Computed example of a mutant assay.
Amino acid sequence: MSIELIIADDHPLLLKGLRDFLEENNFNILAQANNGKDALGLIEKHKPKIAILDLEMPEMTGLEVATACRIKKINTKIILLTLHKEIFILHQAKTLNISGYLLKDFAIEELINCIQKINVGEEYYSEKLFPEEKNNLNTVQNEKLTPSEIKILKLIADGLTSKEIAIKLFIAERTVDKHRSNIISKMNLDKKHNSLLIWAQNNKGKFF
């Protein structure tokens, strides 16, 4: 029995190419959409095993569709296709239990393997997206962070602000901010707001 899929992308040519490729490889496309809202409706209607979604779409993004599926307790596995190589987005995807995350430029050569792994309950995050990510997850083990930085990282994971951490540790707030900056640099994290918080919360209990 072929794997049943829903696909969605707001670019008509990319959507057609994706569908043609999947059908040529004997996957069953139940329906397709060109925006996130319609994609969610199709997922609710058909309850496919897997949905392949563009990250950025009108109405709802792929992340927003995944969030809605989680709230509605829909068991469809989500694969996101993206043009972005941002660690911040990867961490968002992981918090939503998204099963696959592929860079569009390399999607064709990885997609079948990704679908097959997800079909048997595994996850697939393309190494082409973040070749340094595995190293990032081992930074604490490799002792790149100082004891002070690890202590601050734990408090960040608990949701404390720089001011609250400074009060708790009896140090200046600017000292906390300096530590935060050093951690972001050492972990090669995105400098966007909350990226360090998301990383710390995702890895709390794993590495510190």
Score class of each variant (00 low, 15 high):
N135T: 14
G159W: 10
K128Y: 06
L5K: 05
K37V: 02
K128S: 11
Q92N: 13
D10R: 02
K117G: 05
F130S: 12
I43F: 02
I74M: 11
D190C: 07
M60Y: 09
K163F: 05
I50P: 08
H193G: 00
I98F: 01
Q116D: 15
S181C: 12
E132G: 11
E86C: 01
E149K: 01
L14P: 04
K206H: 04
L96W: 01
Q32F: 01
E123S: 15
E23C: 06
F88E: 15
I89W: 05
T95M: 09
Y125E: 00
Q141W: 13
L102R: 07
N188E: 13
T161R: 09
V176R: 12
K128V: 09
L13M: 10
L189M: 13
E127Y: 02
F21Y: 15
S162L: 07
M57L: 12
L80Q: 09
F208R: 06
E59C: 00
N202C: 10
H46I: 08
K16W: 04
I156R: 13
I7G: 00
L111Q: 06
L63P: 07
L197N: 08
H46V: 05
E23K: 05
D190M: 00
L81N: 04
R174L: 13
H84R: 12
I152A: 11
A31N: 05
L145P: 05
K73V: 09
L40H: 06
H193N: 06
P48Q: 09
V65C: 07
E86M: 06
L111S: 03
S2V: 05
E4H: 11
P48H: 02
I184S: 01
L5I: 07
M60R: 05
T67Y: 12
Y101E: 03
H193L: 08
A166T: 08
N182G: 01
Y125C: 03
K16E: 11
N75G: 07
A93K: 06
G17S: 12
E133F: 15
E44L: 08
E59V: 13
P147H: 12
E173N: 14
G36Y: 00
L155S: 08
F170S: 12
L153P: 03
K104A: 10
K73G: 06
L160K: 15
G205C: 02
M60Q: 08
K144A: 11
L189R: 14
R19A: 11
I150R: 09
H46G: 04
N28W: 13
